[in-house]
């Protein structure tokens, strides 16, 4: 049974993951004329790439934390509603509209003559340049990741045996205690899953860093994009890719759940 189940998945893994990863590792040891070299790795350890890595981690961290702060209460609220699945769908539907298009909308909203600034002006406040700032970058990134974070957290909260919560009340727990001692610990699986789904892709954002941050935020994703397309240096691009995978492994180790390590 186990083997039959595993077959399509393992096939997928070999063809679409293991094979490409080997291809990538192979490329990472190649210079632009196809000779074997370690130079790409040496270059990655130079100050530019280290700076970029730190930058990527910092922004991914900020994005993940803010997304989590918004998403956990949101998931909690939805889990208490009568038509949970419907409300969950309402949260997901915006993700089905093309992201480039939504970004253009954000340019219109956050712009100097945009809606947000007109509102500020009405209240007698100064207009501010919101676009092409860290603020815009993080806002739009959080906007994009909220649904990804909400889903697994919601599923975890929703899966908690209600009797456990009632039992805690019966034992005299306050609402706050029930939340911190019962609900949050029991929904950690979902939180971890949500963190992985947000943090890992956030490390390699590049479209957004150009569209809403005006390329003032340079991430590893930007570097890969440039190496592959502009420089046509697939070797260096692959090297950055290899490091991204290593960083992902690190994130996985940090967020590993107890059950996985049994």
């Amino acid at each position: 049974m186990k083997r039959v189940l595993a077959l399509p998945y393992l096939l997928w893994m070999v063809v679409f993951v293991i094979l490409p990863v080997f291809l990538m590792i192979y490329y990472s040891f190649n210079d632009m004329s196809g000779n074997l070299t370690l130079q790409n790795y040496a270059e990655f350890l130079s100050s530019n790439y280290i700076k970029m890595t730190l930058n990527s981690f910092w922004y991914a961290f900020l994005i993940t934390v803010i997304t989590l702060i918004v998403s956990y209460p949101l998931a909690l609220v939805i889990s208490r509603l009568k038509h949970k699945t419907f409300w969950l769908l309402i949260i997901i539907i915006p993700t089905w509209i093309n992201i480039l298009l939504k970004t253009y909308a954000f340019i219109g909203i956050l712009g100097i003559n945009g809606i947000l600034n007109s509102v500020l002006e009405k209240f007698g406040l100064m207009k501010i340049q919101l676009l092409f700032s860290d603020f815009a970058f993080i806002t739009v990134a959080v906007y994009i990741f909220i649904p990804f974070m909400v889903l697994p957290i919601f599923n975890s909260i929703n899966g908690i045996n209600k009797n456990l919560i009632w039992a805690s009340y019966d034992l005299g727990a306050s609402k706050w205690e029930a939340l911190t001692k019962v609900i949050i610990p029991l929904s950690l699986e979902g939180v971890k899953s949500g963190i992985q789904i947000t943090f890992i892709p956030a490390l390699s954002l590049f479209m957004l860093s150009r569209l809403v941050a005006g390329n003032k935020v340079v991430t590893l994703g930007t570097a890969i994009e440039q190496q592959f397309l502009t420089n046509e240096n697939w070797g260096m691009g692959s090297t950055v890719g290899v490091f991204l995978i290593l960083f992902m492994v690190f994130v996985m180790l940090v967020t590993r759940t107890k059950k996985e390590s049994i």
Binding site: Y104, I107, G111, I112, N113, F132, R210, L211, K216
Partner: peptide, 17 residues
């Protein structure tokens, strides 16, 4: 420098950004 961008320059300049 406000930003180093591509096609978005169009919408930025249209909006007098």
């Amino acid at each position: 420098v406000r930003g180093i961008v591509g096609d978005e320059i169009a919408s930025m300049m249209k909006e007098n950004e």
